[in-house]
């Protein structure tokens, strides 16, 4: 990975996928795309960072996830201000079907560790062992989180459907 051309190509291929994954994680499409752009910008500023990395997309995903986490923490204060009504906040969402909007909304209700496991496994299509490695926990812990997450989502989506009906 050396220079803008390769990175540009990687951006073209991987950025849509990564953004979809970060969207599942953050529930905010603009935030998701910004985190992915931030990850690419860090590599573009210092291309040596990708030297020797076997899987650049996985590396970028990890950076983007960490960026999203950091921003989430920093935004906590900002969000409190928003809730007091002192600042307006724009909700940005892509044109999605109601079902997908509901799914993203319910993902945000899951605990962070569960949500990350669900996003990495079901949306980023990572094997359980790789999810465990990325999250720094055991395979058993990932399986437990996936089970909890999937069960919670299924219940919540069923409830939503019943309410709509």
């Amino acid at each position: 990975m050396d220079g803008d051309v390769d990175l540009h190509e990687l951006y073209r291929v991987a950025a849509p996928r990564l953004t979809a994954q970060m969207f599942g994680l953050t529930g905010d499409y603009a935030e998701a795309q910004d985190a992915v752009h931030e990850a690419f910008a860090r590599v573009l500023a210092r291309p040596a960072r990708l030297r020797g990395v076997d899987n650049p997309e996985a590396w970028l995903r990890t950076v983007a996830m960490n960026v999203a986490r950091s921003r989430h923490r920093r935004r906590a204060l900002f969000d409190r201000l928003v809730r007091t009504g002192r600042l307006p906040r724009d909700e940005v969402a892509p044109p999605l079907s109601p079902d997908h909007v509901a799914l993203v909304a319910e993902l945000q209700t899951l605990p962070r560790v569960v949500r990350e496991a669900v996003v990495l496994h079901y949306i980023a299509d990572q094997p359980v062992a790789e999810v465990a490695s990325a999250l720094g926990c055991s395979v058993e812990a990932v399986k437990t989180r996936l089970l909890r997450g999937r069960r919670a989502l299924a219940v919540a989506l069923t409830d939503r459907e019943a309410t709509r009906a």
């Binding site: 540009h8 951006y11 073209r12 950025a15 849509p16 996928r17 953004t19 979809a20 994954q21 969207f23 599942g24 499409y29 795309q33 752009h37 690419f40 910008a41 573009l44 892509p94 044109p95 999605l96 079907s97 079902d99 997908h100 799914l103 993203v104 319910e106 079901y122 949306i123 999937r150 989502l153 299924a154 219940v155 989506l157 069923t158 459907e161």
Partner: peptide, 24 residues
């Protein structure tokens, strides 16, 4: 029990992506 449509969400999210290399 309704199962989440992850594949559909990924596809929708990808299609919604608007490349902005200049921003990077």
């Amino acid at each position: 029990m309704r199962e989440p449509d992850f594949a559909g969400l990924v596809e929708s999210g990808r299609q919604a992506f608007r490349p902005d290399w200049d921003d990077v």
